[in-house]
Structure formats: structure tokens, C-alpha cells
Simulated assay, not measured.
Amino acid sequence: MTPIAGFVFLLVTVFGGYTIAGGKFGIIMKSLPYEMLMIGGAAIGAFIMANSMHDVKHVLGGIGKILKGPRFKKADYTDLLSLLYYFVRLAQTKGAMALEPHIEKPEESPVFSKFPKIQKDHHATDLICDYLRMVGMNADDPHQIEDTMARELKKLKEEELHPSHAMQNIADALPALGIVAAVLGVIKTMASIDQPPAVLGGMIGGALVGTFLGVLLAYGLMGPLASRLKGVVEEEAAYYEVIRAVIVAHLHGNAPQVSVETGRKVAPSFLMPSFSETETALQELSIA
């Protein structure tokens, strides 16, 4: 919920400073509904024009990611390393064919069932099963597998980053849309040029609310949210990079412990389980 807390703090400091400086809210509150209708409506219309319905739904899902934050914690990395350790050890000791019951039906696998969060993550299960299946099909060239996995992970990351790009595009457009609303307010003011200065001042002030809102919404809301979503996606992408690192290390002929250690080093530093934590988890790994 840090984005909400940050935005509340932003509003308090901006409008608190305005109030301390002697500013009055009457003209802002009077103009706010109309300016928000013009600027917000134009932004939504531009957003719909620029994106497909699939992308629109994707952006709405991205808002949930912003509020919840990254899905993966340190324990999730420990679980992933434990699962991968079991598979690479099984492949090394009993051969790639021993993996078949688990990778063909992961929803029924007692190994995947031990880690329900991984089992429910279709990206993780697809990566693990697809590439271990390729190993069973004698596609054991580590360089070829690494290149293929890298391309797939890059594609997945770019798809997940699209909502962030879409939100940033709207953030870039909001100041200009605020100017559009302000210009309309100036046009309205010029049509009433015969009014007293006090009335004209109020009308000009109302027009400037549009410029203010456009800039505030761009740099105080949409831009930071787009940046936050990008950070969440990039942090979550590191989780899937661990899978690639372990499988490629296994194909290079490393021992299961070394393959897992290679994957552990790929995890983000603040989420990376320590060597002793990983070793303890592997020793306690028990799958019926």
C-alpha cells in the first residue's frame, strides 16, 4: 500500500503548502469537477484508442500488482530452488525419463504438490516442464537451451511491461491535456471580457486549474505508478531467471548442489536465501 501512502503524502504537502501560503480552495473546488471531466475523459479516451481490449484488461490487472507489490518473497525462492534441486538430482541419478510423470501432469505430481504456489504459477510450471521435457527429447545442448529460454523470458517480460508503458504514455500526455482544458477556460474567459476584473480573475484562475491538474496527475500519480509497476515486473522476472540458471547449469554437467547454487546467485540480493538457508531447505526436503 506504499503507493497510496505516497500519494496521500504528496497531496498533503502540495495543498498544505498552498494553504499555508494563503491560497483559497474555493476556485479550485468550483473548477475541479469540470476540469477533471475534460482531462480525465480525454486521457481515458486516448488510452482506449491506443490499446486493444486485451491490453486494457492487462493494465487493470497491473493496477492490482502496484497495490499488492511483487508476489515473490525469500521463502518462494527457497521453495523454487528446492523443487529444482529435486528434479535435477532425479534426472542425474535416474535419467531424464524419470521426470516424465512429473512434467507431463504437474497438477498430479507429488513433487509440485509439495509447492502449491509454484504449481499454481503457470509461467513457472510451463518453464520447468517444457525445458525438462526438451532435455528428455535429447535437446541437451546447454547453449541452445539457454538461448531459447532467454528469448522466451524476454518475451514474457516485455508482455508484462506493456501496462507500464501504456500508463507512462498517458502520464506523458496528461500535461498537454491539462493545457487543452486550460485553453478552453481561457476561451470561455475571453467571451466574458466585459465582466469586472474580479470575475475575470476567477475565470482565469479556474482555467489554470486545468494546467495544474494535468501536471499533478502526470508527475504525481500516473508517472510514479508506471515506474512502480515496471519495478514490480522486473523484480518478478528475476524469479523465472532462477529456473533458467539452474536448468542450464544442470545441462553443463554440474552436480545438483552446484546447479542450485548457480540459480541462487541469480535471485535479487535482498530476496536471495543464504547458502546455509538453502542447504537446510534441501536437507529437509522430503517428498513421498
Rank of each mutant, 00 (worst) to 15 (best):
G26N: 01
E160T: 10
L208E: 03
D55R: 11
H102K: 01
M272H: 06
Q257S: 11
A288D: 14
F270P: 10
A198R: 07
S192N: 14
Y131G: 02
A237T: 02
P163H: 02
S286N: 13
P116F: 05
D55V: 14
E152S: 14
D130E: 06
A255M: 15
K24E: 07
A75I: 12
F47C: 04
V233Y: 05
F212W: 06
A98C: 11
T189S: 13
E107G: 06
I193C: 04
M38I: 12
S274H: 02
D147N: 05
T2S: 15
S276P: 01
A50T: 14
S269P: 03
V233D: 01
L282D: 01
P268T: 07
K154H: 15
K117T: 03
I247G: 01
V186T: 04
I145H: 08
Q92W: 12
E284P: 08
E152I: 08
K114L: 09
I145V: 10
P116T: 03
V12E: 08
A198K: 11
K114R: 12
I145T: 14
V186N: 05
H165C: 13
S113C: 06
S52W: 05
V135S: 01
S82C: 02
A139G: 04
D76W: 02
L229Y: 10
L32I: 04
I63K: 04
I179S: 06
G17Q: 12
G201P: 07
P175C: 02
L271S: 11
G220M: 12
H54A: 14
F9I: 10
V209R: 01
D126V: 12
P268S: 04
L81A: 00
S286A: 15
S31A: 15
K57R: 08
K157G: 14
G61V: 13
H252D: 09
F9V: 13
V135I: 10
A50D: 11
E235R: 15
L177Q: 01
I187G: 08
F270V: 08
I128Q: 00
G231R: 05
L174D: 01
K265A: 15
F47Q: 04
G205R: 03
P70F: 07
G210V: 11
A249P: 04
P273C: 05
A21C: 10
R228C: 02
V242Q: 01
H162P: 08
E241T: 07
I128C: 00
H123G: 09
S31V: 06
T278K: 00
V248Q: 00
